[in-house]
Design a protein around this nucleic acid. Structure first.
Length: 890
DNA sequence: TCGAATGAAAT
DNA sequence: ATTTCATTCGA
């Protein structure tokens, strides 16, 4: 599509020329790596890729594309969206409020209002947002070291046709051009979506935060892209490409299903995640008829995760996801135990590395053998349903919420249960998806979009049902804990117990079949896949027993043993552990666990736990997973402890990266696996943290602002009076959501209107953008004067009169009052100063900032309340007087 | 796809 | 000093 043009790339553009002939179908790896940055892991990935490459997969084209992809990397960086600034965060957090108040208002109008609010917002409050934005930015930069806000000119933006689009797109497009980007963008658009995945509390809110994850996204996208490219279909190149690595992966592994299917491709275009999902789904579709894909999943494992995220998309995926999750759990367990282990037999524990391939198959074989037959049918059905459901999942989000509660539980249990039910599938996938998302780096929003898209695509089905639930993952901490538990349990040998516990929960859900379903699903797929995989991928399979259909299993197997173990376990007694886990809500972890559980259940577990554990253990050890896990755990603890963004960020970034990287490479070797885990955790943590922070940001009640605004339509008023000012103060903050504050503000709200000095101006800062505004309003002059003198010149009136609030003032006045005498007094006094005599003098003394403050004070004065000045502290509450502030300044 | 706002970064 | 673009979503 758009393709060619991409600014940057175009060079390659088009075609492919492939710059690099790397192969690797999996370019994505590289890309990811780049994105990820730092980590050199790429290399590993490459290796893996090579392996994959072995598989025929795509043609050279892919490679070429890869080259492009590399570009993508760049693009990827670009791709990353800028972190939101304080104002945007504010908008994000308050837009909904504005909308509620003014349903009719369109976003633009809402934006204006928000701007007004922002203008009025107390400095303190603003500072909160500013700080958050800063943290966000810092984290973002860590994740995207070389990130440039402006792509710069390079991009010939204009060049291409519609330049216009270009600009905006630029980045995105660029990426698109590359391949990946596009998809993401698309996704972005879609934001509409409810955000399936994230059941997280305020996914929406998080969106911004999600940015942080961008890096991961990039990575993902990159992968996708790369893979897509790899695929090659010339014609569709883009699309196909999109399928991307995963897809390719799957294909490869599976043998490919072949991508080619044009149809599939199309869908893929969408965002990265989306693509992902599509990919997976596509694959699934492709496969759907036949289960092929699994293999691929297994291969990546990570992919699996991804897929899981995507999973929604396909039934198969879900399974896979589950497996992956299980896988992780298994790892966890193993690690913890240390275990026991052994089972040499299995072998391939390594699987994870190869992921898909090798080990998994073996595993699959075993598991599959056991389960396949029985499950297959079920699985298939379930799979289909799942797929459908998935689409709908979005809708389900609602449910998700419900599930969320469970999530923790669900995570563990759900897998099983879920698997049975569509919901389960959904759930699983969702959770995973979330994690995956994170991993990928996709933002929630994006994800949502993607999902939406998917829905659209598939939405037809909707099953609706319960799907959703899984979305979420939850806090990292909890995850960690859960993990810990798991580990302990494992060590103790509780596995079964946990399982049991889990199961019970499942029970809640109806469905009985569920267990089987999971397995079943797997089995069918497995079968198909197995074939394909073998063919395609192959090799790994080695084991193969074959018949086994094992994709899923294999996957699981790869992941691991755990699955097998689980098999044994099926039974399950509940154990406390489970409960515990749930509590913790280890989203990711849980998911894993749950997956494991599911698997187990599903699997039926023919194998003994031991075997499973052993396998896992080996695998973990070999890969270093244990270490990583531990590290993660520690990390998680730490981060949790710290709590704040900064720390978190750090973790976040690192983890994400790692994760992403690992994810990318995922299969590759050991390291990555670890990364995954960490990654997951990290992501989860980060997300959580950010969410928390974001949520913690104060929310002001609209009312306050509204009054002001409404009263004064900012501009409208402009007016000459000038006066006014604003009110800033009112902040009525709700701190965090709490509206409780409303009452508070109400009290506070009152503004006092002052008259205020024209000059007021607010202006504190006049920042670039502000300047713009000022210009518009003419305020600038004033401001400047302020610096030096004031010249009210003409413009003054306008100024920001926005605030002006006369009416508001009135209102406020009524309300206000609370401030009381003191406040008002102070305010007044200040005003007086500022205005009157002071003005001139003031100008001299005060810096712009001071003036701004004064102005603010005045406003406050009206509004009242708050204004907390610096001194205040936070409290907004009251008053504090503006005056004080002014004084302070002086 | 544009736009309305603010802000940070880049040019 | 100006340009880009981040979020949001109705037109």
């Amino acid at each position: 599509m758009k393709g060619s043009s991409r600014n940057k790339d175009h060079s390659t553009e088009g075609e492919g020329t492939g710059k690099r002939p790397k192969r690797k179908c999996l370019q994505w790896h590289p890309l990811l790596a780049k994105k990820l940055l730092d980590f050199s892991e790429e290399e590993e990935e490459e290796e893996e890729e090579e392996d994959f490459d072995k598989v025929p997969l795509l043609g050279a084209d892919g490679l070429e594309q890869d080259a492009d992809e590399t570009e993508d990397d760049e693009s990827s960086e670009q791709r990353a969206r800028r972190p939101m600034n304080a104002f945007l965060l504010f908008c994000k957090r308050h837009r909904s409020l504005v909308r509620k108040e003014h349903p009719r208002l369109d976003n633009r109008g809402a934006t204006k209002i928000l701007a007004d609010w922002w203008a009025v917002l107390d400095p303190k409050e603003k500072q909160k947002y500013t700080d958050m934005a800063k943290e966000y930015k810092d984290a973002f930069m860590k994740a995207n070291p070389g990130y440039k806000w402006c792509p710069t000119t390079n991009k010939p933006v204009k060049t291409q046709t519609s330049t216009v689009t270009n600009r905006k797109k630029l980045w995105a497009f660029a990426s698109d051009s590359t391949k990946d980007l596009p998809s993401p963008r698309k996704a972005a658009k879609s934001e509409e979506m409810p955000q399936l995945n994230f059941a997280m509390a305020d996914p929406t809110q998080m969106g911004g935060l999600s940015m942080l994850l961008l890096a991961g996204e990039h990575a993902l996208t990159a992968q996708e892209v790369s893979s897509g490219t790899c695929q090659s279909d010339a014609a569709n190149s883009t699309e196909p490409c999109q399928k991307s690595s995963l897809f390719q992966f799957a294909e490869i592994s599976s043998s490919t299903s072949r991508p080619g299917v044009p149809g599939d491709v199309k869908q893929t275009e969408e965002s990265a995640l989306f693509q992902f999902a599509e990919i997976s789904s596509n694959t699934s579709q492709l496969s759907s008829p036949e289960p092929v894909k699994h293999c691929g999943k297994s291969a990546l494992f990570q992919l699996a995760e991804i897929s899981s995220s995507t999973s929604h998309s396909g039934p198969d995926l879900t399974k896979q996801c589950g497996t992956s999750a299980l896988f992780q759990l298994a790892e966890m367990c193993l690690a913890s135990e240390g275990v026991k282990v052994k089972e040499p037999g299995k072998t391939k524990v390594e699987a994870p590395e190869d992921v898909g391939g090798e080990v998994p198959e073996e595993m699959d074989v075993e598991l599959e053998k056991t389960t396949k037959d029985s499950c297959k049918e079920k699985v298939e059905q379930s799979g289909i349903e799942k797929m459908q459901n998935w689409d709908e999942t979005k809708a389900e989000e609602l449910e998700t919420a419900k599930y969320r509660d469970f999530t923790s539980l669900a995570m563990e249990n759900s897998p099983f249960e879920r698997s049975d039910n569509t919901k389960d599938h959904m759930c699983c996938s969702p959770e995973l998806s979330v994690a995956d998302m994170n991993i990928l780096g996709l933002k929630p929003e994006k994800i949502k979009k993607k999902k939406k898209k998917n829905k659209l695509d598939r939405h037809t089905n909707e099953k609706s049902t319960p799907k959703k639930p899984c979305k979420k993952r939850q806090s990292s901490e909890s995850d960690i804990e859960s993990v810990m538990y798991t580990i302990e349990a494992v060590a103790k040998g509780d596995w079964g117990a946990e399982r049991l516990a889990e199961t019970p929960r499942k029970k809640p859900r109806p469905i009985s079949n569920v267990k089987g379903s999971v397995l079943d699903t797997k089995s069918p797929k497995k079968k198909v896949k197995s074939k394909e995989k073998k063919t395609s991928k192959e090799k790994p399979t080695e084991t193969t027993k074959e018949s086994k259909p094992p994709d899923f299993l294999s996957i699981a197997a790869s992941k691991e043993v755990p699955c097998e173990a689980s098999d044994n376990i099926k039974v399950e007694p509940l154990t406390p552990t489970e409960e515990v886990v749930p509590q913790s809500l280890p989203g990711q972890v849980k998911t894993e666990d749950s997956d494991c559980v599911k698997k187990i259940e599903t699997c039926g577990s023919r194998k003994s736990e031991r075997s499973c554990k052993g396998a896992l253990y080996k695998t973990l050890v070999s890969e270093g997973m244990l270490t990583s896990l531990r590290a993660n755990v520690d990390r998680g603890k730490r981060s949790s402890g710290k709590g704040n963004s900064s720390d978190h960020e750090g973790c976040w970034n690192e983890e994400n990266w790692a994760f992403s990287q690992s994810g990318t490479s995922g299969n590759k070797k050991l390291k990555k696996p670890k990364a995954k885990e960490e990654f997951v955790f990290g992501l989860a943590k980060l997300e959580e943290e950010f969410e928390k922070k974001f949520n913690s940001l104060p929310q002001y009640s609209p009312i306050t602002f509204d009054r002001k605004n409404s009263a004064v339509p900012r501009k409208k008023r402009k007016v000459g009076n000038g006066s006014s000012e604003q009110p800033k103060s009112n902040k009525a903050i709700l701190s965090e959501d709490r509206n409780s504050s409303e009452s508070a503000w109400k009290n506070k709200i009152s503004l006092s209107a002052l008259n205020t000095p024209e000059p007021a101006m607010m202006h504190e800062p006049l920042v670039g953008s502000q300047k713009r505004k000022a210009r518009k309003t003419k305020i600038t002059h004033l401001v400047r004067t302020a610096d030096g003198r004031v010249s009210p010149a003409g413009g003054t009136l306008e100024e920001k009169p926005k605030e002006l609030p006369q009416s508001t003032l009135q209102k406020t006045s009524s309300a206000e009052t609370d401030c009381n005498g003191e406040c008002s007094r102070n305010a007044e006094t200040e005003e007086n100063h500022s205005i009157t005599s002071d003005m001139p003098a003031v100008s001299a003394f005060f810096s712009l900032a001071a003036l701004a403050e004064v102005a603010a004070m005045e406003n406050v004065h009206r509004s009242q309340r708050a204004t907390p000045l610096p001194h205040d502290g936070q409290p907004n509450e009251m008053s504090q007087a503006p005056v004080l502030i002014s004084c302070a300044d002086q």
